[in-house]
Design a protein around this nucleic acid. Structure first.
Length: 273
DNA sequence: CCAGTATCCTGCAGGC
DNA sequence: TGCCTGCAGGATACTG
């Protein structure tokens, strides 16, 4: 599900819903996720602490607790966080249940188990390898100045560069595809073969599409929802993602499919050059 | 260093 | 109807 707009929507929903609540118990269910720390350890660690705040970094969520410590969560491809009454039926593929003091559960559901949940003691955050490797936050103010120069210094296709979390953290396949179409740039064009001027346009469109998607609560294609079960409404705004074979909204040329970095990309051979 | 591929896992759509 | 294949919003270890 989750690229930056979806994770940001979850973050903001959780921030207003669970800050101030304390953790009664944490229970691991079924099999562990691929990179889920031992649930009993998380339980012993988190029990009795109060949720202090919810942050986002790239596609990662960070639940800050007090006494200090952080639960790091990544939703992978199919992960969802659900905030439900404690007696609500437990969905299959529920890996972690956080029992809160107001009678609700925060549940981590992830059928494909590509996500992660990991406890970070104070100070460990800066050492965590997956966090440390992350590049710029795409909505930060200096990105329009810096990112075009970073891309211009690389030889990879722009689609690959947009998906590389070490350069810019939070863009995934949907928004990379949309931003390239909006900017009128061919996804296979290489960074060093693209003028800084055009790269500025691309970065502008990345920021625009991310901001618009955050406003719409993200994009629901299949199973993404907010913790309270609401769907993101940005799907109706998608111009090319998932529309291979349909006419380009700008010039009516039939949209084509291209695989770059193992991911499919819809693009218009006429207006993306 | 770079780019491309395989891999983790389940669910679902489409072809036969 | 059922079986098979390939693909899906991601990250990373590996290969050449």
């Amino acid at each position: 599900m989750p690229e930056l707009p979806e994770v940001e929507t979850v973050r903001s929903a959780l921030a207003s819903a669970i800050v101030g609540r304390s953790v009664v118990a944490v229970e691991g269910r079924r099999v562990q996720m691929r990179r889920l720390l031992d649930p009993p350890v998380i339980n012993r660690t988190m029990r009795g602490r109060t949720v202090d705040g919810v942050r986002r970094r790239g596609k990662f969520l960070l639940l800050d607790l007090d006494p200090p410590g952080t639960l790091l969560i990544h939703l992978g491809m199919s992960g969802r966080l659900l905030l439900v009454a404690a007696d609500e039926e437990v969905l299959s593929h529920t890996h972690l249940v956080v029992d809160l003091d107001d009678g609700r559960h925060l549940r981590l559901v992830d059928p494909r188990r590509f996500g992660l949940a990991r406890w970070l003691d104070p100070g460990e955050e800066s050492e965590d390898p997956s966090l440390a490797a992350l590049g710029m936050e795409p909505l930060d103010g200096d990105v329009p100045r810096l990112l075009p120069l970073v891309f211009h210094a690389r030889r990879s296709p722009l689609k690959s560069l947009l998906l590389d979390q070490r350069l810019v953290a939070g863009v995934g396949n949907i928004y990379a595809t949309e931003a390239l179409w909006r900017a009128g740039i061919r996804p296979s064009r290489r960074g060093h073969q693209t003028s800084v001027e055009r790269l500025r346009r691309l970065v502008t469109e990345v920021q625009a599409v991310l901001r618009e998607a955050v406003e719409q609560g993200g994009t629901t294609i299949r199973d993404y929802s907010t913790p309270s079960g609401d769907f993101g409404s940005f799907a109706v705004m998608l111009q090319v993602y998932g529309k291979v074979g349909l006419p380009c909204p700008r010039c009516c040329t039939r949209l084509r499919d291209l695989r770059i970095a193992g991911r499919s990309t819809a693009w218009c051979p006429h207006c993306q050059t």
